[in-house]
Design a binder for these strands. Structure first.
Lengths: 299, 299
DNA sequence: AACTAGTGATAGCTATTTTCTATTATAAAC
DNA sequence: GTTTATAATAGAAAATAGCTATCACTAGTT
Protein backbone atom coordinates (compact mmCIF):
# COMPACT_ATOMS: atom_id res chain seq x y z
CA UNK A 1 0.00 0.00 0.00
CA UNK A 2 0.96 3.60 -0.49
CA UNK A 3 2.79 5.19 2.41
CA UNK A 4 0.25 6.54 4.85
CA UNK A 5 0.41 10.26 5.26
CA UNK A 6 -0.85 12.19 8.26
CA UNK A 7 -4.19 13.86 7.63
CA UNK A 8 -4.67 17.61 7.53
CA UNK A 9 -6.95 17.26 10.49
CA UNK A 10 -4.31 15.55 12.60
CA UNK A 11 -1.76 18.19 11.71
CA UNK A 12 -4.15 21.05 12.40
CA UNK A 13 -4.93 19.55 15.79
CA UNK A 14 -1.29 19.05 16.61
CA UNK A 15 -0.41 22.61 15.65
CA UNK A 16 -3.22 23.81 17.89
CA UNK A 17 -1.84 21.67 20.70
CA UNK A 18 1.62 23.08 20.21
CA UNK A 19 0.13 26.55 20.50
CA UNK A 20 -2.14 26.00 23.49
CA UNK A 21 -0.11 23.40 25.39
CA UNK A 22 -3.38 22.08 26.65
CA UNK A 23 -5.54 19.33 25.18
CA UNK A 24 -8.85 20.72 26.30
CA UNK A 25 -8.17 24.25 25.14
CA UNK A 26 -6.62 23.21 21.87
CA UNK A 27 -9.61 20.95 21.26
CA UNK A 28 -11.95 23.82 21.88
CA UNK A 29 -10.00 26.01 19.48
CA UNK A 30 -10.45 23.28 16.88
CA UNK A 31 -14.16 22.99 17.64
CA UNK A 32 -14.00 19.34 18.63
CA UNK A 33 -14.41 17.53 21.90
CA UNK A 34 -11.36 16.78 23.95
CA UNK A 35 -11.61 12.99 23.46
CA UNK A 36 -11.79 13.31 19.70
CA UNK A 37 -8.81 15.61 19.87
CA UNK A 38 -6.81 13.28 22.09
CA UNK A 39 -7.49 10.37 19.81
CA UNK A 40 -6.30 12.34 16.79
CA UNK A 41 -3.03 13.23 18.50
CA UNK A 42 -2.53 9.60 19.47
CA UNK A 43 -3.20 8.53 15.91
CA UNK A 44 -0.59 10.95 14.68
CA UNK A 45 1.95 9.71 17.19
CA UNK A 46 1.30 6.13 16.28
CA UNK A 47 1.42 6.86 12.56
CA UNK A 48 4.75 8.63 12.88
CA UNK A 49 5.87 6.20 15.57
CA UNK A 50 7.19 9.14 17.55
CA UNK A 51 6.25 10.73 20.83
CA UNK A 52 5.12 14.26 20.05
CA UNK A 53 4.04 15.42 23.49
CA UNK A 54 5.04 14.68 27.04
CA UNK A 55 2.00 14.27 29.24
CA UNK A 56 4.02 13.17 32.23
CA UNK A 57 4.15 16.32 34.20
CA UNK A 58 1.28 18.46 35.18
CA UNK A 59 1.74 20.33 31.96
CA UNK A 60 1.87 19.34 28.34
CA UNK A 61 5.29 19.66 26.73
CA UNK A 62 6.02 19.30 23.06
CA UNK A 63 9.06 17.09 22.50
CA UNK A 64 11.98 18.30 20.40
CA UNK A 65 10.91 16.12 17.51
CA UNK A 66 7.38 17.36 18.04
CA UNK A 67 8.48 20.91 17.46
CA UNK A 68 10.31 19.99 14.29
CA UNK A 69 7.24 18.18 13.05
CA UNK A 70 4.96 21.06 13.95
CA UNK A 71 7.12 23.36 11.86
CA UNK A 72 6.99 21.06 8.88
CA UNK A 73 3.29 20.54 9.40
CA UNK A 74 2.68 24.25 9.21
CA UNK A 75 4.57 24.25 5.93
CA UNK A 76 2.49 21.44 4.55
CA UNK A 77 -0.77 23.06 5.56
CA UNK A 78 0.32 26.35 4.06
CA UNK A 79 0.98 24.54 0.80
CA UNK A 80 -2.51 23.14 1.01
CA UNK A 81 -3.91 26.60 1.48
CA UNK A 82 -1.95 27.83 -1.52
CA UNK A 83 -3.86 25.26 -3.56
CA UNK A 84 -7.05 26.98 -2.49
CA UNK A 85 -5.55 30.34 -3.37
CA UNK A 86 -4.50 29.23 -6.82
CA UNK A 87 -8.00 27.98 -7.42
CA UNK A 88 -9.52 31.18 -6.19
CA UNK A 89 -7.26 33.46 -8.17
CA UNK A 90 -8.43 31.67 -11.23
CA UNK A 91 -12.01 32.61 -10.51
CA UNK A 92 -13.67 35.98 -10.65
CA UNK A 93 -13.05 38.09 -7.58
CA UNK A 94 -15.86 38.00 -5.04
CA UNK A 95 -17.10 34.62 -6.06
CA UNK A 96 -17.45 31.49 -4.03
CA UNK A 97 -17.65 31.39 -0.28
CA UNK A 98 -17.02 34.53 1.75
CA UNK A 99 -17.89 34.90 5.41
CA UNK A 100 -18.55 38.40 6.67
CA UNK A 101 -18.97 39.47 10.27
CA UNK A 102 -20.98 42.60 11.00
CA UNK A 103 -21.75 44.30 14.30
CA UNK A 104 -25.40 44.76 15.31
CA UNK A 105 -25.21 48.56 15.16
CA UNK A 106 -24.25 48.45 11.50
CA UNK A 107 -25.92 45.36 10.07
CA UNK A 108 -29.55 46.50 9.99
CA UNK A 109 -28.67 49.82 8.37
CA UNK A 110 -26.15 48.86 5.72
CA UNK A 111 -27.01 45.31 4.79
CA UNK A 112 -30.52 45.86 3.39
CA UNK A 113 -28.99 47.98 0.69
CA UNK A 114 -25.66 46.21 0.36
CA UNK A 115 -26.85 42.65 -0.05
CA UNK A 116 -29.02 43.15 -3.13
CA UNK A 117 -26.26 45.18 -4.73
CA UNK A 118 -23.73 42.42 -4.08
CA UNK A 119 -26.08 39.77 -5.35
CA UNK A 120 -26.48 41.74 -8.54
CA UNK A 121 -22.83 42.66 -9.11
CA UNK A 122 -21.36 39.36 -7.93
CA UNK A 123 -23.96 36.68 -8.52
CA UNK A 124 -21.47 33.88 -7.82
CA UNK A 125 -20.69 35.24 -4.38
CA UNK A 126 -21.86 32.89 -1.68
CA UNK A 127 -21.98 35.20 1.31
CA UNK A 128 -22.15 33.91 4.86
CA UNK A 129 -23.15 36.52 7.41
CA UNK A 130 -22.51 36.53 11.12
CA UNK A 131 -23.77 39.33 13.36
CA UNK A 132 -22.14 39.85 16.72
CA UNK A 133 -20.29 42.42 18.77
CA UNK A 134 -16.88 43.62 17.66
CA UNK A 135 -14.92 41.57 20.15
CA UNK A 136 -16.63 38.37 19.08
CA UNK A 137 -16.47 38.81 15.29
CA UNK A 138 -12.84 39.84 15.64
CA UNK A 139 -12.04 36.66 17.51
CA UNK A 140 -13.91 34.56 15.01
CA UNK A 141 -12.00 36.23 12.22
CA UNK A 142 -8.63 35.64 13.84
CA UNK A 143 -9.58 32.00 14.28
CA UNK A 144 -10.31 31.79 10.58
CA UNK A 145 -14.04 31.43 11.08
CA UNK A 146 -14.73 34.71 9.33
CA UNK A 147 -12.90 36.15 6.35
CA UNK A 148 -13.60 39.81 6.94
CA UNK A 149 -15.56 41.97 9.36
CA UNK A 150 -17.46 45.23 9.02
CA UNK A 151 -17.13 47.18 12.24
CA UNK A 152 -16.94 50.64 13.73
CA UNK A 153 -13.59 52.23 14.44
CA UNK A 154 -11.59 53.14 16.37
CA UNK A 155 -11.17 49.77 18.02
CA UNK A 156 -8.03 48.22 19.41
CA UNK A 157 -7.18 45.34 17.08
CA UNK A 158 -3.97 43.45 16.42
CA UNK A 159 -2.78 41.55 13.40
CA UNK A 160 -5.24 43.11 10.99
CA UNK A 161 -5.39 45.37 8.00
CA UNK A 162 -8.35 47.62 7.47
CA UNK A 163 -9.90 50.06 5.11
CA UNK A 164 -11.84 53.01 6.43
CA UNK A 165 -15.05 53.42 4.45
CA UNK A 166 -16.79 56.53 5.68
CA UNK A 167 -17.60 58.59 8.73
CA UNK A 168 -20.83 57.98 10.52
CA UNK A 169 -21.82 61.13 12.45
CA UNK A 170 -23.59 60.94 15.75
CA UNK A 171 -26.85 62.75 16.34
CA UNK A 172 -28.52 63.68 19.56
CA UNK A 173 -31.88 61.97 19.92
CA UNK A 174 -34.57 62.93 22.39
CA UNK A 175 -38.33 62.91 22.60
CA UNK A 176 -39.94 65.94 21.03
CA UNK A 177 -40.73 68.39 23.81
CA UNK A 178 -38.64 66.41 26.24
CA UNK A 179 -38.56 67.67 29.77
CA UNK A 180 -34.89 66.72 29.95
CA UNK A 181 -33.35 68.85 27.25
CA UNK A 182 -33.99 71.57 24.74
CA UNK A 183 -32.61 70.10 21.55
CA UNK A 184 -32.12 73.50 19.94
CA UNK A 185 -29.96 74.80 22.71
CA UNK A 186 -28.40 72.43 25.16
CA UNK A 187 -25.18 71.70 26.98
CA UNK A 188 -24.40 68.08 27.62
CA UNK A 189 -22.99 68.81 31.03
CA UNK A 190 -26.19 70.46 32.10
CA UNK A 191 -28.26 67.36 31.53
CA UNK A 192 -29.86 65.83 34.60
CA UNK A 193 -28.10 62.95 36.27
CA UNK A 194 -28.55 59.56 34.62
CA UNK A 195 -30.36 61.04 31.68
CA UNK A 196 -28.08 59.70 28.96
CA UNK A 197 -29.19 56.27 27.78
CA UNK A 198 -26.65 53.97 26.17
CA UNK A 199 -26.36 50.43 24.94
CA UNK A 200 -25.09 47.87 27.41
CA UNK A 201 -21.41 47.14 27.81
CA UNK A 202 -19.80 45.23 24.99
CA UNK A 203 -21.38 47.27 22.25
CA UNK A 204 -18.78 49.51 20.73
CA UNK A 205 -21.52 52.02 20.02
CA UNK A 206 -21.66 52.71 23.73
CA UNK A 207 -18.02 53.74 23.82
CA UNK A 208 -18.13 55.58 20.55
CA UNK A 209 -21.20 57.54 21.62
CA UNK A 210 -19.61 58.37 24.95
CA UNK A 211 -16.51 59.58 23.23
CA UNK A 212 -18.49 61.53 20.61
CA UNK A 213 -20.67 63.49 23.05
CA UNK A 214 -17.69 64.54 25.13
CA UNK A 215 -19.48 63.96 28.36
CA UNK A 216 -17.52 65.06 31.42
CA UNK A 217 -18.99 62.89 34.10
CA UNK A 218 -20.37 59.38 34.03
CA UNK A 219 -23.01 60.57 36.49
CA UNK A 220 -24.97 61.78 33.49
CA UNK A 221 -25.19 58.22 32.16
CA UNK A 222 -28.16 56.14 33.18
CA UNK A 223 -27.54 52.92 35.05
CA UNK A 224 -30.24 51.41 32.92
CA UNK A 225 -28.89 50.16 29.62
CA UNK A 226 -30.43 48.76 26.48
CA UNK A 227 -29.33 45.59 24.72
CA UNK A 228 -30.35 46.79 21.30
CA UNK A 229 -30.83 50.03 19.44
CA UNK A 230 -34.51 49.26 19.10
CA UNK A 231 -34.93 49.07 22.87
CA UNK A 232 -32.83 52.16 23.31
CA UNK A 233 -35.10 54.09 20.98
CA UNK A 234 -38.15 52.89 22.82
CA UNK A 235 -36.67 54.22 26.04
CA UNK A 236 -35.91 57.58 24.49
CA UNK A 237 -39.41 57.71 23.04
CA UNK A 238 -40.73 57.23 26.58
CA UNK A 239 -38.56 60.24 27.54
CA UNK A 240 -36.55 58.13 29.99
CA UNK A 241 -33.47 59.88 28.66
CA UNK A 242 -31.62 61.06 25.60
CA UNK A 243 -29.12 59.21 23.47
CA UNK A 244 -26.77 59.45 20.52
CA UNK A 245 -27.70 57.75 17.31
CA UNK A 246 -25.37 57.11 14.40
CA UNK A 247 -26.39 58.78 11.18
CA UNK A 248 -26.91 55.57 9.25
CA UNK A 249 -29.67 54.68 11.70
CA UNK A 250 -31.54 57.88 10.98
CA UNK A 251 -32.23 56.81 7.44
CA UNK A 252 -33.67 53.53 8.55
CA UNK A 253 -37.15 53.17 9.94
CA UNK A 254 -35.78 52.84 13.43
CA UNK A 255 -37.34 56.16 14.43
CA UNK A 256 -40.55 55.74 12.46
CA UNK A 257 -43.69 55.99 14.53
CA UNK A 258 -41.82 57.60 17.43
CA UNK A 259 -41.86 61.16 18.66
CA UNK A 260 -38.10 61.36 18.65
CA UNK A 261 -36.28 64.28 17.08
CA UNK A 262 -32.58 64.34 16.27
CA UNK A 263 -29.99 67.07 15.99
CA UNK A 264 -26.49 66.81 14.55
CA UNK A 265 -23.65 66.90 17.02
CA UNK A 266 -20.42 68.78 16.42
CA UNK A 267 -18.65 67.82 13.20
CA UNK A 268 -15.99 65.75 14.91
CA UNK A 269 -18.50 63.56 16.68
CA UNK A 270 -18.49 60.45 14.61
CA UNK A 271 -17.57 56.82 14.46
CA UNK A 272 -15.81 55.43 11.43
CA UNK A 273 -17.09 52.46 9.50
CA UNK A 274 -14.31 50.14 8.41
CA UNK A 275 -13.71 46.81 6.77
CA UNK A 276 -11.12 44.70 8.58
CA UNK A 277 -9.32 41.48 7.69
CA UNK A 278 -6.41 39.41 8.89
CA UNK A 279 -3.06 40.93 8.08
CA UNK A 280 -1.62 39.44 4.92
CA UNK A 281 -4.79 37.66 3.95
CA UNK A 282 -4.57 36.30 0.46
CA UNK A 283 -7.98 37.72 -0.33
CA UNK A 284 -7.02 41.34 0.33
CA UNK A 285 -7.83 42.30 -3.25
CA UNK A 286 -11.32 40.94 -2.91
CA UNK A 287 -11.87 42.74 0.37
CA UNK A 288 -10.91 46.04 -1.21
CA UNK A 289 -13.34 45.37 -3.99
CA UNK A 290 -15.98 44.57 -1.41
CA UNK A 291 -15.18 47.79 0.44
CA UNK A 292 -15.94 49.72 -2.73
CA UNK A 293 -19.44 48.33 -2.67
CA UNK A 294 -20.20 49.58 0.82
CA UNK A 295 -21.61 53.11 0.75
CA UNK A 296 -23.01 55.34 3.47
CA UNK A 297 -26.74 54.98 3.45
CA UNK A 298 -29.12 57.36 1.78
CA UNK A 299 -26.71 59.96 0.46
CA UNK B 1 -15.86 26.81 10.22
CA UNK B 2 -12.20 26.53 9.44
CA UNK B 3 -11.38 26.77 5.78
CA UNK B 4 -11.79 23.37 4.21
CA UNK B 5 -8.59 22.00 2.76
CA UNK B 6 -8.37 19.34 0.10
CA UNK B 7 -7.53 15.92 1.52
CA UNK B 8 -4.31 14.11 0.79
CA UNK B 9 -6.35 11.43 -0.83
CA UNK B 10 -7.98 13.82 -3.26
CA UNK B 11 -4.64 15.32 -4.19
CA UNK B 12 -3.02 11.93 -4.64
CA UNK B 13 -5.85 10.88 -6.90
CA UNK B 14 -5.66 14.04 -8.91
CA UNK B 15 -1.92 13.72 -9.37
CA UNK B 16 -2.45 10.17 -10.56
CA UNK B 17 -5.08 11.42 -12.98
CA UNK B 18 -2.74 14.06 -14.31
CA UNK B 19 -0.18 11.33 -14.89
CA UNK B 20 -2.40 8.70 -16.49
CA UNK B 21 -4.91 10.97 -18.23
CA UNK B 22 -7.45 8.23 -17.71
CA UNK B 23 -9.88 7.79 -14.85
CA UNK B 24 -9.91 4.02 -14.86
CA UNK B 25 -6.16 3.60 -15.07
CA UNK B 26 -5.41 6.29 -12.55
CA UNK B 27 -7.94 4.71 -10.20
CA UNK B 28 -6.26 1.36 -10.61
CA UNK B 29 -2.88 2.92 -9.86
CA UNK B 30 -4.41 4.29 -6.66
CA UNK B 31 -5.93 0.91 -5.81
CA UNK B 32 -9.50 2.17 -5.75
CA UNK B 33 -12.49 1.59 -7.94
CA UNK B 34 -13.15 3.98 -10.78
CA UNK B 35 -16.35 5.39 -9.26
CA UNK B 36 -14.67 6.16 -5.95
CA UNK B 37 -11.93 7.82 -7.90
CA UNK B 38 -14.33 9.86 -10.03
CA UNK B 39 -16.19 10.99 -6.95
CA UNK B 40 -12.97 12.14 -5.29
CA UNK B 41 -11.99 14.19 -8.33
CA UNK B 42 -15.45 15.74 -8.42
CA UNK B 43 -15.21 16.54 -4.71
CA UNK B 44 -11.92 18.27 -5.31
CA UNK B 45 -13.32 20.27 -8.18
CA UNK B 46 -16.31 21.33 -6.17
CA UNK B 47 -14.20 22.18 -3.13
CA UNK B 48 -11.90 24.34 -5.21
CA UNK B 49 -14.78 25.49 -7.36
CA UNK B 50 -12.61 24.99 -10.41
CA UNK B 51 -12.69 22.65 -13.35
CA UNK B 52 -9.58 20.54 -13.17
CA UNK B 53 -10.14 18.17 -16.08
CA UNK B 54 -11.90 18.33 -19.40
CA UNK B 55 -13.90 15.19 -20.04
CA UNK B 56 -15.53 16.52 -23.17
CA UNK B 57 -13.48 14.80 -25.79
CA UNK B 58 -12.73 11.18 -25.98
CA UNK B 59 -9.66 11.87 -23.92
CA UNK B 60 -9.12 13.38 -20.52
CA UNK B 61 -7.32 16.73 -20.57
CA UNK B 62 -6.03 18.56 -17.54
CA UNK B 63 -6.99 22.23 -17.63
CA UNK B 64 -4.37 24.96 -17.26
CA UNK B 65 -5.46 25.67 -13.72
CA UNK B 66 -5.48 21.92 -13.11
CA UNK B 67 -1.82 21.71 -14.01
CA UNK B 68 -0.94 24.57 -11.68
CA UNK B 69 -2.85 22.88 -8.91
CA UNK B 70 -1.23 19.53 -9.59
CA UNK B 71 2.18 21.15 -9.21
CA UNK B 72 1.24 22.74 -5.93
CA UNK B 73 -0.38 19.51 -4.79
CA UNK B 74 2.85 17.63 -5.39
CA UNK B 75 4.59 20.21 -3.24
CA UNK B 76 2.10 19.81 -0.45
CA UNK B 77 2.31 16.03 -0.52
CA UNK B 78 6.09 16.17 -0.53
CA UNK B 79 5.88 18.31 2.59
CA UNK B 80 3.69 15.66 4.14
CA UNK B 81 6.23 13.02 3.30
CA UNK B 82 8.95 15.11 4.84
CA UNK B 83 6.99 14.93 8.08
CA UNK B 84 7.29 11.17 7.90
CA UNK B 85 10.99 11.48 7.16
CA UNK B 86 11.61 13.77 10.09
CA UNK B 87 9.84 11.31 12.33
CA UNK B 88 11.82 8.43 10.95
CA UNK B 89 15.18 10.13 11.19
CA UNK B 90 14.48 10.61 14.85
CA UNK B 91 14.09 6.89 15.33
CA UNK B 92 16.73 4.22 15.19
CA UNK B 93 17.62 3.21 11.65
CA UNK B 94 15.89 0.07 10.47
CA UNK B 95 12.92 0.47 12.73
CA UNK B 96 9.27 0.73 11.91
CA UNK B 97 7.76 -0.45 8.68
CA UNK B 98 9.96 -1.56 5.81
CA UNK B 99 8.72 -3.49 2.80
CA UNK B 100 11.22 -5.68 1.01
CA UNK B 101 10.75 -7.41 -2.30
CA UNK B 102 12.79 -10.55 -2.99
CA UNK B 103 12.91 -12.76 -6.07
CA UNK B 104 12.08 -16.46 -5.69
CA UNK B 105 15.57 -17.62 -6.62
CA UNK B 106 17.05 -15.71 -3.71
CA UNK B 107 14.39 -15.68 -1.00
CA UNK B 108 14.56 -19.31 0.18
CA UNK B 109 18.36 -19.26 0.41
CA UNK B 110 19.09 -15.93 2.05
CA UNK B 111 16.02 -15.18 4.12
CA UNK B 112 16.17 -18.12 6.56
CA UNK B 113 19.45 -16.80 7.81
CA UNK B 114 18.79 -13.09 7.28
CA UNK B 115 15.46 -12.74 9.03
CA UNK B 116 16.51 -14.02 12.47
CA UNK B 117 19.60 -11.85 12.29
CA UNK B 118 17.52 -8.78 11.47
CA UNK B 119 15.03 -9.57 14.19
CA UNK B 120 17.87 -9.77 16.66
CA UNK B 121 19.81 -6.68 15.55
CA UNK B 122 16.79 -4.51 14.79
CA UNK B 123 13.98 -5.69 17.01
CA UNK B 124 11.83 -2.67 16.17
CA UNK B 125 11.95 -3.39 12.47
CA UNK B 126 8.57 -4.35 11.13
CA UNK B 127 9.48 -6.11 7.91
CA UNK B 128 6.97 -6.76 5.15
CA UNK B 129 8.12 -9.32 2.59
CA UNK B 130 6.93 -9.78 -0.95
CA UNK B 131 8.29 -12.52 -3.18
CA UNK B 132 7.93 -12.18 -6.92
CA UNK B 133 9.94 -12.03 -10.11
CA UNK B 134 12.27 -9.10 -10.73
CA UNK B 135 9.98 -7.28 -13.16
CA UNK B 136 7.10 -7.39 -10.73
CA UNK B 137 8.91 -6.36 -7.54
CA UNK B 138 10.62 -3.59 -9.50
CA UNK B 139 7.26 -2.23 -10.63
CA UNK B 140 5.83 -2.45 -7.15
CA UNK B 141 8.84 -0.60 -5.84
CA UNK B 142 8.54 2.17 -8.40
CA UNK B 143 4.88 2.53 -7.47
CA UNK B 144 5.88 2.98 -3.86
CA UNK B 145 4.47 -0.36 -2.76
CA UNK B 146 7.88 -1.68 -1.82
CA UNK B 147 10.73 0.26 -0.25
CA UNK B 148 13.61 -1.84 -1.48
CA UNK B 149 14.18 -5.04 -3.45
CA UNK B 150 16.73 -7.80 -3.27
CA UNK B 151 17.40 -9.11 -6.76
CA UNK B 152 20.02 -10.62 -9.04
CA UNK B 153 22.02 -8.38 -11.37
CA UNK B 154 22.62 -7.46 -14.08
CA UNK B 155 19.09 -6.32 -14.81
CA UNK B 156 17.96 -3.34 -16.85
CA UNK B 157 16.42 -0.92 -14.36
CA UNK B 158 15.77 2.81 -14.49
CA UNK B 159 15.45 5.38 -11.77
CA UNK B 160 17.13 3.30 -9.11
CA UNK B 161 20.23 3.18 -6.99
CA UNK B 162 21.71 -0.12 -5.97
CA UNK B 163 24.39 -1.73 -3.93
CA UNK B 164 26.08 -4.88 -5.14
CA UNK B 165 26.37 -7.33 -2.25
CA UNK B 166 28.30 -10.34 -3.48
CA UNK B 167 28.86 -12.65 -6.39
CA UNK B 168 26.83 -15.81 -6.57
CA UNK B 169 28.72 -18.36 -8.69
CA UNK B 170 26.91 -20.80 -10.90
CA UNK B 171 27.53 -24.53 -10.59
CA UNK B 172 26.78 -27.24 -13.02
CA UNK B 173 24.29 -29.71 -11.61
CA UNK B 174 23.59 -33.15 -13.00
CA UNK B 175 22.53 -36.53 -11.70
CA UNK B 176 25.41 -38.62 -10.44
CA UNK B 177 26.41 -41.00 -13.23
CA UNK B 178 24.26 -39.13 -15.69
CA UNK B 179 24.15 -40.52 -19.19
CA UNK B 180 24.16 -36.96 -20.52
CA UNK B 181 27.44 -35.60 -19.26
CA UNK B 182 30.67 -36.44 -17.46
CA UNK B 183 30.81 -33.77 -14.79
CA UNK B 184 34.59 -34.09 -14.41
CA UNK B 185 35.31 -33.41 -17.98
CA UNK B 186 32.68 -31.88 -20.20
CA UNK B 187 32.14 -29.29 -22.86
CA UNK B 188 28.85 -27.46 -22.81
CA UNK B 189 28.62 -27.45 -26.56
CA UNK B 190 28.90 -31.22 -26.70
CA UNK B 191 25.80 -31.75 -24.62
CA UNK B 192 22.92 -33.48 -26.35
CA UNK B 193 20.15 -31.35 -27.82
CA UNK B 194 17.59 -30.06 -25.30
CA UNK B 195 19.53 -31.38 -22.37
CA UNK B 196 19.87 -28.09 -20.53
CA UNK B 197 16.96 -27.49 -18.19
CA UNK B 198 16.08 -23.95 -17.17
CA UNK B 199 13.41 -22.08 -15.31
CA UNK B 200 10.51 -20.72 -17.32
CA UNK B 201 10.61 -17.28 -18.90
CA UNK B 202 10.33 -14.37 -16.55
CA UNK B 203 12.78 -15.75 -14.02
CA UNK B 204 15.99 -13.80 -14.26
CA UNK B 205 17.83 -16.95 -13.21
CA UNK B 206 17.06 -18.36 -16.64
CA UNK B 207 18.87 -15.54 -18.38
CA UNK B 208 21.69 -15.36 -15.89
CA UNK B 209 22.31 -19.08 -16.16
CA UNK B 210 22.25 -18.94 -19.95
CA UNK B 211 24.74 -16.12 -19.91
CA UNK B 212 26.93 -17.86 -17.33
CA UNK B 213 27.28 -21.16 -19.11
CA UNK B 214 28.21 -19.49 -22.37
CA UNK B 215 26.09 -21.81 -24.40
CA UNK B 216 26.46 -21.35 -28.17
CA UNK B 217 23.17 -22.62 -29.39
CA UNK B 218 19.71 -22.54 -27.91
CA UNK B 219 19.22 -26.03 -29.37
CA UNK B 220 20.89 -27.36 -26.25
CA UNK B 221 18.12 -25.91 -24.12
CA UNK B 222 15.14 -28.07 -23.34
CA UNK B 223 11.72 -26.88 -24.44
CA UNK B 224 10.45 -28.11 -21.12
CA UNK B 225 10.86 -25.53 -18.39
CA UNK B 226 10.32 -25.52 -14.66
CA UNK B 227 8.41 -22.90 -12.74
CA UNK B 228 10.48 -23.27 -9.61
CA UNK B 229 13.95 -24.34 -8.62
CA UNK B 230 12.49 -27.25 -6.68
CA UNK B 231 10.83 -28.61 -9.79
CA UNK B 232 13.98 -27.99 -11.80
CA UNK B 233 16.01 -30.02 -9.34
CA UNK B 234 13.51 -32.86 -9.47
CA UNK B 235 13.88 -32.90 -13.23
CA UNK B 236 17.66 -33.01 -13.01
CA UNK B 237 17.44 -35.74 -10.40
CA UNK B 238 15.39 -37.73 -12.89
CA UNK B 239 18.29 -37.19 -15.35
CA UNK B 240 16.01 -35.34 -17.76
CA UNK B 241 18.83 -32.85 -18.19
CA UNK B 242 21.47 -30.78 -16.51
CA UNK B 243 21.18 -27.29 -15.14
CA UNK B 244 23.07 -24.45 -13.52
CA UNK B 245 22.48 -23.73 -9.88
CA UNK B 246 23.55 -20.62 -8.04
CA UNK B 247 25.96 -21.24 -5.23
CA UNK B 248 23.62 -19.99 -2.49
CA UNK B 249 21.27 -22.83 -3.38
CA UNK B 250 23.96 -25.45 -2.85
CA UNK B 251 24.12 -24.66 0.83
CA UNK B 252 20.41 -25.08 1.22
CA UNK B 253 18.69 -28.42 1.45
CA UNK B 254 17.46 -28.07 -2.10
CA UNK B 255 19.69 -30.91 -3.19
CA UNK B 256 19.23 -33.07 -0.09
CA UNK B 257 17.90 -36.53 -0.77
CA UNK B 258 18.78 -36.25 -4.45
CA UNK B 259 21.53 -37.91 -6.41
CA UNK B 260 22.65 -34.66 -7.92
CA UNK B 261 26.29 -33.64 -7.96
CA UNK B 262 27.56 -30.16 -8.70
CA UNK B 263 30.75 -28.75 -10.14
CA UNK B 264 31.92 -25.14 -10.18
CA UNK B 265 31.83 -23.36 -13.49
CA UNK B 266 34.52 -21.00 -14.71
CA UNK B 267 35.26 -18.17 -12.31
CA UNK B 268 33.45 -15.56 -14.31
CA UNK B 269 30.19 -17.50 -14.35
CA UNK B 270 28.13 -15.77 -11.74
CA UNK B 271 25.17 -13.59 -11.04
CA UNK B 272 25.43 -10.69 -8.68
CA UNK B 273 23.16 -10.20 -5.71
CA UNK B 274 22.17 -6.59 -5.20
CA UNK B 275 19.93 -4.42 -3.10
CA UNK B 276 18.00 -1.85 -5.16
CA UNK B 277 15.88 1.17 -4.20
CA UNK B 278 14.30 4.18 -5.83
CA UNK B 279 16.81 6.83 -6.78
CA UNK B 280 16.99 9.53 -4.14
CA UNK B 281 14.97 7.60 -1.59
CA UNK B 282 15.13 9.26 1.78
CA UNK B 283 15.86 5.91 3.40
CA UNK B 284 19.08 5.30 1.50
CA UNK B 285 21.06 5.19 4.72
CA UNK B 286 18.86 2.49 6.10
CA UNK B 287 19.12 0.46 2.93
CA UNK B 288 22.90 0.55 3.09
CA UNK B 289 22.71 -0.60 6.67
CA UNK B 290 20.38 -3.40 5.59
CA UNK B 291 22.80 -4.33 2.80
CA UNK B 292 25.49 -4.82 5.41
CA UNK B 293 23.33 -7.47 7.04
CA UNK B 294 23.00 -9.56 3.91
CA UNK B 295 25.83 -12.05 3.60
CA UNK B 296 26.53 -14.85 1.16
CA UNK B 297 25.32 -18.04 2.71
CA UNK B 298 27.50 -20.53 4.55
CA UNK B 299 30.89 -18.88 4.13
C1' DA C 1 -4.72 9.94 54.60
C1' DA C 2 -9.00 11.40 52.24
C1' DC C 3 -10.89 15.08 49.19
C1' DT C 4 -11.13 17.99 45.33
C1' DA C 5 -9.86 20.13 40.99
C1' DG C 6 -7.75 19.69 36.82
C1' DT C 7 -6.48 17.05 32.95
C1' DG C 8 -5.89 13.53 29.63
C1' DA C 9 -7.34 8.60 28.25
C1' DT C 10 -10.90 5.10 27.36
C1' DA C 11 -15.48 3.02 26.13
C1' DG C 12 -19.63 2.64 23.68
C1' DC C 13 -22.49 4.52 20.53
C1' DT C 14 -23.84 7.61 16.50
C1' DA C 15 -23.09 10.27 12.42
C1' DT C 16 -20.50 11.09 8.53
C1' DT C 17 -17.54 9.93 4.90
C1' DT C 18 -15.62 6.87 1.71
C1' DT C 19 -15.80 2.99 -0.96
C1' DC C 20 -17.68 -0.77 -3.40
C1' DT C 21 -20.69 -3.22 -6.94
C1' DA C 22 -23.91 -2.64 -10.35
C1' DT C 23 -25.84 0.06 -13.65
C1' DT C 24 -26.52 3.99 -16.79
C1' DA C 25 -25.21 7.50 -20.17
C1' DT C 26 -22.58 9.15 -23.90
C1' DA C 27 -19.53 9.40 -27.50
C1' DA C 28 -16.55 7.31 -30.83
C1' DA C 29 -15.44 3.14 -33.88
C1' DC C 30 -16.55 -0.50 -36.73
C1' DG D 1 -26.75 0.28 -35.99
C1' DT D 2 -24.45 -2.25 -32.98
C1' DT D 3 -20.21 -2.57 -30.23
C1' DT D 4 -16.61 -0.62 -27.33
C1' DA D 5 -14.66 2.48 -24.18
C1' DT D 6 -15.19 5.64 -20.67
C1' DA D 7 -16.95 8.38 -17.00
C1' DA D 8 -21.07 9.35 -14.04
C1' DT D 9 -24.77 7.85 -10.85
C1' DA D 10 -27.33 4.95 -7.30
C1' DG D 11 -27.63 2.44 -3.27
C1' DA D 12 -25.66 -0.46 0.14
C1' DA D 13 -21.56 -1.55 3.01
C1' DA D 14 -17.45 -0.41 5.42
C1' DA D 15 -14.39 2.62 7.53
C1' DT D 16 -13.59 6.89 9.99
C1' DA D 17 -14.43 10.57 13.05
C1' DG D 18 -17.07 12.43 16.46
C1' DC D 19 -19.80 12.84 20.80
C1' DT D 20 -21.18 11.93 25.78
C1' DA D 21 -20.08 9.79 29.83
C1' DT D 22 -16.71 7.94 32.64
C1' DC D 23 -12.26 6.58 34.35
C1' DA D 24 -7.43 7.28 36.02
C1' DC D 25 -3.89 9.91 37.50
C1' DT D 26 -1.61 14.01 39.65
C1' DA D 27 -1.27 17.93 42.75
C1' DG D 28 -2.62 20.55 46.02
C1' DT D 29 -5.93 20.93 50.41
C1' DT D 30 -8.17 19.78 54.45
Amino acid sequence: MRLNLPTNRQLQYFIALEKHRHFGKAAEACFVSQPAFSVAIQELESLLNVQLVDRNKKQVTITAIGKAIATQARLALTDMEVIIDIARENQQPLSGHLSLGVIPTIAPFLLPELLPRLRKSFPKLDLFLHEDQTERVYELMMQGQLDVILIALPYRLRGVESLSLFRDNFHLACRKGSRLIDPENYVIDNLPEESVLLLEDGHCLRDHALSACKIRSLDKVSKITASSLLTLVQMVDADLGVTFIPEMALHSNLLKHTHIITRPLAKNSFREIGLVWRKGSRRTKEFKLLAGQIQPKGE
